[in-house]
Structure formats: structure tokens, C-alpha cells
């Protein structure tokens, strides 16, 4: 599989304080990767740097061989940790919006997922519950045939049923050659869907590896390993 995401000497600081300092990383296609760490460890900073919402202080980020910019944004599908769609839009407006701007957007897929959830296309986002809005966002993001999915806390603060729905939607819909990065602090909830994991803390990579290898060699879950590494 080809390299989808390549990071070299990446550093992001605010004034003198380094928010992220993770050196070199390489992500090959066909994998689901967990970016795991406590709140404020730099997960969101990482995701925003790769999606182009933040500018690195040092180093470079390449997606599909291109430096982050308008070209990489056409192959990156980003789910922020907050509501980011325009509230005045109706569901059908947002669908049209994605179709207008993203060539890789699969409208049919999005429509079928929305109808499975019983979401009315004429309903405005403003009138939706927080949970429904989150699902609509996820559906839009996962309906793109992207090369890189960046999902920031996709299951943060949802009930178990919604969690199952979200995980199933991710597994069933991501592009097979793509890299999926899931940033979360809820490790137990996602670890079974991960190939690899990266622990970060205070902006630095603490530990990284394959989920199955850890289970095989240490006989423990990533969640337990995490608790050990981050015990306080």
C-alpha cells in the first residue's frame, strides 16, 4: 500500500510552549489508526494541522505526496469535534454543498444512510438534536471516497446505541485504500476497530504499535496498556 500521510519533523508551538512535537510519522493506506491520548494531549492539534486549519511552526506534512493545501483538501475528509455545518441549511442543502465542492462525494450513499436513519431532507439543521446533527455530519464525511479520513472524537459524549451506529458507519463506508485516523480519549470503545495505535501525551508520541501485537505479546487490551502508561 502506498504512503498516504507523511510527516517530517512536525512541530507546533504557541509562543514558547510546544503544543505538538512529534517528529516523523508515516501512514500507509488500508489502515485504521487510533490517535489516543488524554484531553489536551495534542490530538486535535494534530488533526487540524493535517487538515490545514493550523499552520505548522516547523516541519512538513504531505498527504498523497502533496503538501497540505487546496489539493490535499480534495482527498481529505475531516470530521471536527464540534458542529461545523451551517445551521441555516436544510439537510438537502448540505448534501448539495458537499456534492458541489467534493468530487469524491457519493450522494447516493449519503442519501441511503440518511433515509435509513429516517432523517427528513427538508429538515433544517437548526431544528435537529445534537445527536442527529452529529450523525448527519458523520454520514457526509464517510460518504466521501477520500484517501484520508480525519475523525476528531467521533464518539465523544454519545450514548452506547449512537456509539455502535457511528463505529458501524465508519467500518462499513471508509475507502479501502484509505487511512482512517480516529482521535479519541475513549480507548476501550474504539480499540477493536483499530489496526494501529499511537499514544500521545503533552504533544509527544509516547508509544505506538499494532493492537493485535500488544494483545498477543502482553495479553492486555490497549485500554489497559493506556491506563498503565498514563497512570497518575
Amino acid at each position: 500500500m502506498e504512503t498516504v500521510l507523511e510527516i517530517k519533523g512536525l512541530k507546533k508551538s504557541y509562543g514558547k510552549k510546544a503544543a505538538l512535537d512529534i517528529g516523523n510519522l508515516e501512514f500507509k493506506g488500508g489502515k485504521i489508526i487510533g490517535l489516543l491520548g488524554p484531553n489536551g494531549s495534542g490530538k486535535t492539534t494534530f488533526i487540524k494541522l493535517v487538515s490545514g486549519l493550523l499552520t505548522p511552526t516547523l516541519g512538513e506534512i504531505k498527504v498523497g505526496g502533496m503538501l497540505v493545501g487546496a489539493d490535499t483538501k480534495s482527498i481529505v475528509s475531516y470530521l471536527p469535534d464540534a458542529n461545523y455545518l451551517f445551521d441555516w441549511m436544510k439537510t438537502k442543502d448540505v448534501i448539495a454543498f458537499f456534492k458541489d465542492f467534493y468530487k469524491d462525494f457519493d450522494e447516493g450513499l449519503a442519501l441511503s444512510m440518511l433515509s435509513n436513519l429516517g432523517i427528513d431532507l427538508k429538515q433544517s439543521l437548526k431544528s435537529m438534536s445534537k445527536g442527529t446533527k452529529e450523525k448527519v455530519q458523520l454520514i457526509l464525511v464517510m460518504s466521501r471516497r477520500a484517501k484520508l479520513y480525519l475523525l476528531d472524537e467521533p464518539i465523544g459524549g454519545v450514548d452506547p446505541a449512537a456509539r455502535d451506529y457511528i463505529l458501524k458507519t465508519i467500518i462499513s463506508n471508509y475507502n479501502e485504500e484509505a487511512v482512517v485516523v480516529i482521535a479519541t480519549h475513549l480507548i476501550g470503545d474504539v480499540e477493536n476497530i483499530l489496526d494501529d495505535f499511537i499514544f500521545i501525551d503533552e504533544g509527544k508520541v509516547v508509544l505506538a504499535g499494532s493492537v493485535d501485537e500488544v494483545r498477543e505479546e502482553k495479553g492486555k487490551s490497549i485500554d489497559n496498556l493506556f491506563r498503565e502508561v498514563f497512570k497518575c
Binding site: A70, K73, Y84, F101
Partner: peptide
Amino acid sequence: GTEGYLMNTLPVKS
């Protein structure tokens, strides 16, 4: 601002 999350991740030149 807040809506920049959508606008600045669109594949369009600034």
C-alpha cells in the same frame, strides 16, 4: 471563525 472549519477544509484556493 467557527464556520472556517468547513470553509477552510474545502478544496478551493484561499
